[in-house]
Write a protein that binds this DNA or RNA. Sequence first.
DNA 1: TTCCCTTATCTTGACGTCAAGATAACTATT
DNA 2: AATAGTTATCTTGACGTCAAGATAAGGGAA
Lengths: 161, 161
Amino acid sequence: MDHVDKIVSQWNSERPDLNVEPMELIGRFGRIARYLSDEMARTFVKHGLNSASFDMLATLRRAGTPYALSPSALMASTMVTSGTMTNRIDQLEKAGWVTRRQNPKDKRAFIIALTDEGFALIDRVVGEHVETQERLVSGLDKEEFRTLNDLLRRYLENFQD
Amino acid sequence: MDHVDKIVSQWNSERPDLNVEPMELIGRFGRIARYLSDEMARTFVKHGLNSASFDMLATLRRAGTPYALSPSALMASTMVTSGTMTNRIDQLEKAGWVTRRQNPKDKRAFIIALTDEGFALIDRVVGEHVETQERLVSGLDKEEFRTLNDLLRRYLENFQD
DNA sequence: TTCCCTTATCTTGACGTCAAGATAACTATT
DNA sequence: AATAGTTATCTTGACGTCAAGATAAGGGAA
């Protein structure tokens, strides 16, 4: 009887006409995702980052050399709006982790590139991040992990544009 | 090859030393949870609500008669801070969906109660909400749903305080 | 060329949230 | 009673996000 079961049972008492089975599954997704992201955020905060800035630096880092992308490409990868992206870049630039250069081929565009400091930082943090993630899935055995991962992949397929 | 696979394969190229298996699972949780909550929010917006106000009204509604709880109880149920709760109550009160009465037993405390309008609204919206949730899980067959739900319940157990 | 549409980024104003601290009232101890 | 500690709620200031619109530059059709 977890927190989600309690909510579902309240609805069953108050509105027995409602089909609340889907709510069980969806409610658990919400709870788990929130817990996971809160825990991961703790690693970021330890290094002066938050989820947003980690996401930015990680996106640039894993893009490979020369560790540079346009704001548009970053927007597509991170699924945020242009206003948010401007703000994120401003902060990373102010912290000295990225530079903002004009794209000589297209004067509307910029190139956002990791600095040496940004590279060193994200390379350090991502190691600890992965350790945190290992801890967060350690409650599942190999078989459960595989089954769950396969089901999630299948489920996610429904939602891909 | 979904979006998460792409990220994982980028990390494998750039940092083959990292164990990115957990990231697959955790990444999918994030994507799915975000998609689900965005879709559910559309139902709320149609009725002049957002996820926060729906959550408040639903919590009061499923608590059963007399559909009234203290701010503290609402804070515990909805997992937000006191400042957020004050703000949420203010808005619901302004919209005429709840009233804020003094608790005669404890002058520090208040009682937040659904108005008739609030009750009628949430009873209408929750029906549509449940339909949305049915649609959101319709991509899974009975067997998959059961397996997934059981695994999520097991996984969530690890995180309950 | 000129005009129009599209693309890339930035600006502005609003929103929901939180952390920290303020205020007021209750409770237990002396 | 007086005091000290706790509890319930509100206030303030900051943050990250978004939607809508502004600005500037590119590209295609006449």
